[in-house]
Design a protein around this nucleic acid. Structure first.
Ligand SMILES: [Mn+2]
Ligand SMILES: [Mn+2]
Ligand SMILES: [Mn+2]
Ligand SMILES: [Mn+2]
Lengths: 220, 220
DNA sequence: CTAATTTTTTAGACTAGCCTAAAAATATTT
DNA sequence: AAATATTTTTAGGCTAGTCTAAAAAATTAG
């Protein structure tokens, strides 16, 4: 139905819209899809022709409902494939993204639904991001930043803010993976770094840069 | 490394070469990749530039070792994905091909190897076709046509000659699926149709058109 | 409020793949 | 061996997506 390129544009605009507000400018899109602004202007005109977004010269771009639907479906596929790669094939969570970038463009509704069922209808991908349902609904999770925890409080690692390979590999190396319990034992008022217990036993030290990029589900 | 289109050309030429001999002509390729002869001439020149095949005007085309390698890798991916779709996701054997046509072009060696392991290093795909190994070696299976069996002989359904959806759906409907045992009880000398027992119990009648498109492993 | 800077759009050109129609080569009949 | 039919190649052109350089609009600074 839609080309790989079109889906990538829509997904990128969708994400930008979620984080920056309504009108998305050319440069931001160019950055997201890894092209030049001139190419974006071209493509945006075509997507506008197809009623996937509304475009006003020099003003920016906004997805239509139709465009949003395609974007969310692509996001759903991306996150389901990431889950497959991690949970079934054993890829580490920093390795799944690039392959899912390709897999998300495979066209077959039946495949998506069968994959979803096969995975047990997962609610979140390996980075803790919510997986949109078949209906397109995204259940926003109420995860909070690890950095807001106070001494004595604890939570379960449930996601990341920073998705870079570098960060994910750092977490992997330090066994800070999804599902692990962290208990804060000390917060430095100097550099905001935290001392904590991993799974209630192992003592670890976490920089502020790290803790403000980890999402947790707080435990009572 | 190579585009979807290039991989499709190479795979098609490889198959034609296996079944028709060495030099493959333009029209056969055009047919296989679903384009026009003029387009094939164009593409074949490019593939020749890249040393994936040798091409002589008006004479035809022949894969180089390099080209064969790419073709076999693509075939390997195709058949592994078909196996995944059938064995893990529960697709019927007539539905897997079209989706595998897309999946075979996903680029990631690690993915192929992990998928292979996940599937338990299968030797054959859901149509009974051998899956090339990581090394590129294809173990030819010694299956024979069901049509050569004589009264009283039996075998296990192990593959198909005709891969069309129509035929596969016909088999599916009649429960003639991979792994089932067939015992010949009668061969009509009039139309060569066969009477047989499925799994030693159910009586079935099979036209010659059907039995000459089923591959079996003969049982002692 | 004008001038300088930044952002966006236009213009023109490129590549991968594809197509049709015509020309050239090869194969088949007579 | 010539005539006819078939196959293959060339020529020219199209679309999707990309790029660079220049022009135009919008924003920011003085
Ligand atoms: Mn991702
Ligand atoms: Mn993710
Ligand atoms: Mn197939
Ligand atoms: Mn197959």
């Amino acid at each position: 139905m839609y080309s790989t390129t079109e889906e990538n544009y829509l997904k990128t605009i969708y994400k930008l819209q979620a984080q920056l507000g309504t009108f998305i400018n050319t440069n931001a899109i160019a950055d997201g899809v890894n092209t030049k602004a001139a190419s974006v202007t071209d493509m945006v005109k075509k997507l506008s022709e197809k009623k996937l977004l509304s475009y006003e010269k020099y003003k920016g771009v906004q997805l239509t409902e139709k465009g949003k639907k395609v974007a969310v479906e692509t996001l759903r596929k991306h996150r389901l494939w990431e889950t497959f790669l991690h949970n079934q094939l054993g890829f580490t969570w920093d390795a799944v993204h690039d392959i899912a970038e390709q897999l998300e463009h495979i066209q077959s509704n039946e495949l998506v639904e069968k994959l979803d069922a096969f995975l047990g209808f997962p609610s979140h991908d390996p980075h803790g991001d919510p997986i949109p349902g078949r209906n397109g609904v995204i259940k926003e999770s109420n995860f909070i930043l690890l950095s807001v925890l106070k001494k004595g409080e604890k939570g379960i690692i449930s996601g990341v803010v920073n998705h870079s390979s570098l960060f994910l590999q750092h977490l992997e190396k330090n066994k800070l993976t999804l599902g692990k319990t962290i208990t804060i034992t000390e917060v430095s008022s100097f550099d905001l770094s935290m001392a904590a217990l991993l799974e209630g036993k192992e003592k670890i030290q976490l920089s502020n840069e790290v803790v403000k990029n980890i999402l947790i589900k707080k435990l009572a």
